[in-house]
Design a protein around this nucleic acid. Structure first.
Lengths: 174, 174
DNA sequence: CTGTCAGTTCAGTCATTACTGAACATATAA
DNA sequence: TTATATGTTCAGTAATGACTGAACTGACAG
C-alpha cells in the first residue's frame, strides 16, 4: 500500500511493521516542535512529510495517517507554509493539493531563530536605556546580553552562507 | 526606594516612572521566554534580575515586584538554576537566599540549543534507518536535515569558543 | 524548647490553546 | 445547471500546564 490515498498500485516502502515506527517518528517530531514553541500537530505533519512516500501528500493523506481533523491539517499546513518549512503544489486537472518539505526548510528555521536573536539584542538595548544613569557594574549583565547577541547576529548568517556553499556542491540536488 | 526589601536607605536607580518600564521590560522577557518554550514566569524573573538594583534579589523581592506567589517563584528559580541561567547565593548569618544572573547565562542557553540540534540530528538518523531500503530521492529530505544539523553541531561550539575568547579580553569582567 | 521566618511541595484552579467537527466556500465534472 | 470532491473558517471542547495558596519542613533567634 502506497502512502497516498490516490492509488494502491505501487510496492510498499514501509512494511506494516515499520509504518508504526514511521508514525512514531512523526510523533517525536511533534514533541520536538512543541519543545521549540510550535504546535505539536505542525511537527507531526512536518515529520511525516520527511519520510512519506511519495514526498507529496494530500490533506487527506495527512488527516488519515495522523488521525487528525481536516481543520487542524488546514491550519497547521498554513502555518508551516507561512514559516517556510513546507510548500503547496498542485497538478493541473487535479482537484487536490499536495504538500511537501521545502528544500532549505532548516535554513528557514535558522532565519526564525535569527529574528529571535535580534529581538533579544533589542531588548538588551532597551534595558541599557533604563539603566543609562546607573554605574557600569549594574550594566554589565545587559552589556553581556547585548554583545553576545550582536555577535551571533553577525556570525550566524556567515555560517549559514558557508553551509549553503558546501551544500550547493553536492551530487543529486533537487 | 531600593529594589530590595531589606532596607530603603539608598538612592533610587529607577524613578517611580521608569520602574513601571522596568516591570514592562521583565514582562517582555517573559513573552520571549514563552516563545522559546520556557514558562513565562521564568522569563519575568530572569528579566527582572537583568536590571534589578542590586543584582541580587530575594524570593520576596521577586514575588513582590512580579506579583507572583512564593510557590511559583520557588519552582521557577529552581528551573532557572537547573538550566544554568541564574545562581543562588547566600550570606552567612542571613536567613534568606539571593538570586542573581549567572555570568555566561547566554552561553548556557546556547548549550541548550545545541542539545536540541543533536536531538534533531539523531531523529534524522532514525528516519534514514526507516528509509534504508528506499531510493536516494526519498532519502534526500532526511539527508539534508541530518547534514545541516551535523554541520551546526560542529561549528556552533567553535563559534562559542571564539566568543569566549573575545569576551575574556574585556575590561571590567566580574 | 518555642516562635518566627524563609523556602518547598503539592493539590486545586484558571487560562490558554490546540484540536475537533460542522457549516460554509470554491472548484471541477457530469 | 446540479452533484461531488476539496479546502477553509470558526465556534465549541478538551487537555495541557502555569500559577496560586495553604500546609509542611527546616533553621535560626530568643
Amino acid at each position: 500500500m502506497r502512502q497516498s490515498s490516490a492509488d494502491s498500485t505501487h510496492s510498499p516502502v514501509f512494511s506494516p511493521c515499520t509504518e508504526r515506527e514511521a508514525i512514531y517518528f512523526a510523533e517525536e517530531m511533534g514533541l520536538m516542535f512543541e519543545k521549540v514553541g510550535f504546535p505539536r500537530m505542525a511537527g507531526r505533519i512536518f515529520g511525516w512529510l520527511l519520510i512519506s512516500d511519495p514526498p507529496q501528500q494530500t490533506s487527506q493523506d495527512l488527516a488519515h495517517i495522523l488521525q487528525a481533523s481536516k481543520g487542524s491539517i488546514s491550519s497547521m499546513t498554513r502555518l508551516l507554509i507561512q514559516i517556510g518549512l513546507i510548500e503547496r503544489t498542485s497538478i493541473p486537472g487535479e482537484r487536490r493539493d499536495y504538500f511537501q518539505i521545502r528544500p532549505n526548510a532548516w535554513t528557514q528555521l535558522a532565519e526564525q531563530r535569527l529574528a529571535q536573536i535580534a529581538t533579544f539584542r533589542r531588548l538588551a538595548e532597551r534595558g541599557l536605556d533604563l539603566l543609562s544613569d546607573a554605574p557600569p557594574t549594574l550594566k554589565q549583565r545587559l552589556q553581556e546580553m547585548h554583545d553576545v547577541h550582536a555577535f551571533w547576529e553577525q556570525e550566524l548568517p556567515q555560517l549559514n552562507q558557508r553551509w549553503e556553499r558546501e551544500w550547493q556542491g553536492r551530487p543529486g540536488r533537487a
